[in-house]
Design a protein around this nucleic acid. Structure first.
Length: 592
RNA sequence: GGUUCCGUAGCUCAGCUGGAUAGAGCAUCUGCCUUCUAAGCAGACGGUCGCGCGUUCGAAUCGCGCCGGAAUCACCA
């Protein structure tokens, strides 16, 4: 489907050139404000220089030219310097026919010859369960993957699991000390929660030991470094690196618990990855790339043997890439991992979904890879999203001020259940059906609540608001879809329709023109890496539909012809809502 | 202190390649279910778009300077 707005602009261009001469003035069509009852507005101010008359007069001249010469334009009106144009019924029909002619209007199927794009998201540590912050990350990452797919890209979704390091050793240490061989099976606790429990236990023990030491007159800084438990954890990490069989065995066991817990949560969220990278495998990467860059003078070695890159000419600082003992820093393995990924897959770009606290890190990473001469470095993106705050302030995992992902999903489901019971919606459904619906609606509410906000902005998560199912919410969109589905069910088989004589009323025109924007919205979301455009667009469509639905009857319209084309319109609205919601990872129920 | 991001209605957010009287939802208040799902619709109330200067026919939008908030600037992960 071609963009009819752009089509109109190019039709108008030669006409204005005819009127005022060719001065390179672009035609800028914008949507008419609601109160003026027209489809598009052409701002004539840019033409004043050449029309040499008042804005009103200029608009008159342009308006009469356009409406006489273009069959697409029916009539026009002038308000101040604004030329309001009305599209002809035939042209609206043509636009609608274009929408109908495509099976999955708005979605561009992936072309297999195209290079793929990799999206990395989630990337959890394996010492505690997922929380609200991960949920935002996951929802954005998954949604943007869907959106990229819908704009014709092949997508490889990956996560890197931070499965090694002091954090997991802390859990391991506490489990050995206090665990009594507790397992997820024995205590019927989800694996990631069980490991998280021992991480918390470690922290408590650590604090206890630190304060004991401090009471003996040792400074806090020294105490924190010298208490027994932290020394044992550090020893454990060294043993792990040395491949100590017993430590490795425990490490494997506890990580497995965490993975099964994560997978359960991912499944609930409807998320899956094409490949998991593990830090235990990637943390060695990058050193050889540094050595090579050192030979090419991209990096330099200081007297103490540490290796650095000087980025002061790029407005940044000097950055370390290898420690003086030759060991890696985060940057080292990120360099190596990026390079590895372009070897593993036929991709031409890579997008990292990571919080904005790491803006600087990624700026440096991309710059280094560019200096190393990788041409794909220009196509690395950091989808930097803002932190999620609670109404009470920042989330602090150490202080237990976190919203747990599983708890949150449970809560959303039970709220959905409560709502549908109150509204008497569940009566006509089997208990199995309504249970499914509670999940679809509860999760829909959560996903929409998070995705409707521009990712790069920090957002406040108020549980009371997220649980609201009225107004600009996921359930509202789902409800609209269910309403239409019900109409379609009742109408039965849909006849083919003749659009040639349709007289579109105002609400219908709004819908047709609204629907026509869907491909562009997807495209822009993909370019901006921003799912919120989709969310806000769907809300507009749904509002527009409900307003239409309230005012005009579909099944018992004035005539069968009207009924038929209205139904066809409904089918397209439902399709756009469903496909749009799916891009956000939200299911569109047929009943609710 | 340097760099980056943010500041729009009581609250949560749209709008930001410059365009008309700045939009939604929530909250508060009014109407609308003997008619296709009222998780809906129609309406009221609510604003010095952080402040100032500049560019422009025109600035929430662009530039500069302040004020306020956040992140980051580790031989941490």
């Amino acid at each position: 489907m071609i963009d009819f707005k752009r089509q109109l602009e190019s039709l108008m261009m030669p006409l204005t050139v005819e009127l005022f001469g060719d001065h390179g003035v672009a035609i800028d069509l914008q949507e008419t404000r609601k109160e003026f009852n027209a489809d598009f507005t052409l701002v004539v101010f840019p033409f004043l220089k050449f029309s040499k008359t008042s804005p009103e007069k200029t608009a008159e001249i342009v308006g009469s030219k356009l409406s006489t010469e273009l069959s697409e334009i029916n009539n026009f009106s002038v308000v101040k310097g604004f030329l309001n144009l009305n599209l002809s019924q035939e042209f609206v029909s043509k636009i609608f026919a274009g929408i109908e002619s495509e099976k999955n209007f708005g979605i561009t199927a992936a072309n297999n010859t195209q290079p793929s794009v990799m999206v990395e998201y989630s990337s959890p540590n394996t010492n505690k369960p997922l929380h609200l912050g991960h949920i935002r990350n996951n929802l954005i990452g998954h949604s943007i993957s869907n959106i990229l797919k819908a704009s014709g890209r092949n997508v490889v979704q990956v996560q890197i699991i931070n499965d090694r390091g002091v954090h997991i050793c802390k859990s391991m240490w506490a489990w050995k000390k206090f665990g009594n061989n507790e397992t997820p099976e024995k205590s019927r606790l989800k694996g990631d929660h069980l490991v998280g429990k021992y991480y918390v236990l470690f922290d408590q023990e650590y604090k206890k030991q630190v304060s004991e030491k401090m009471s003996k007159g040792i400074s806090e800084v020294d105490a924190k470094k010298s208490v027994a438990c932290i020394l044992e954890v550090q020893k454990m990490l060294l043993d792990w690196e040395a491949g100590d069989p017993e430590v490795v065995k425990l490490w494997k066991k506890m990580n497995e618990w965490v993975y099964s817990g994560f997978n359960e949560t991912y499944q609930r969220l409807g998320i899956e990855f094409d490949k998991n990278y593990y830090e235990s495998e990637t943390y060695i990467l990058g050193k050889s790339d540094i050595e090579e860059g050192l030979k090419r003078n991209i990096f330099f070695r200081k007297e103490d043997n540490s290796v650095w890159i000087d980025l002061t000419n790029d407005g940044l600082d000097e950055k370390i890439v290898l420690r003086s003992d030759g060991s890696s820093v985060y940057m080292t393995q990120d360099i190596g991992t990026a390079i590895q990924r372009f070897k593993d897959f036929e991709i031409d770009s890579l997008t990292y979904v990571v919080g904005n606290e790491q803006d600087y890190h990624f700026k440096v990473l991309f710059l280094i890879l560019e200096k190393l001469g990788y041409k794909w470095a220009k196509r690395l993106h950091h989808l930097s999203y803002g932190m999620v705050d609670l109404p009470t302030g920042k989330m602090k995992s150490r202080e237990g001020k976190v919203v747990d992902a599983d708890d949150l999903l449970d809560e959303m489901e039970s709220t959905a259940k409560q709502m549908s019971t109150e509204l008497g919606k569940a009566n006509s459904l089997s208990s199995k059906e309504s249970q499914m619906l509670d999940k679809i609606i509860g999760h829909g509410a959560l996903k929409y609540f998070i995705l409707k906000v521009d990712p790069k902005k920090r957002m406040v998560f108020n549980p009371d608001d997220s649980v609201d199912f009225n107004g600009n919410t996921g359930p509202f969109l789902q409800y609209t879809h269910a309403r239409i589905s019900s109409l379609i069910r009742k109408a039965g088989f849909q006849k083919s329709i003749d659009l040639s004589d349709v007289h579109w009323n105002e609400k219908e025109r709004d819908l047709v023109l609204g629907l026509s924007k869907f491909p562009e919205v997807i495209h822009n979301s993909a370019i901006d890496l921003n799912p919120s455009h989709i969310a806000n667009y769907l809300y507009e469509i749904a509002k527009s539909f409900n307003s239409f639905y309230q005012k005009h009857s579909v099944l018992s319209a004035e005539s069968k012809t009207i009924s038929a084309y209205r139904l066809a319109l409904c089918v397209q609205v439902a399709g756009v809502l469903r496909r749009g919601l799916n891009l956000l990872g939200i299911d569109a129920p047929e009943k609710m």
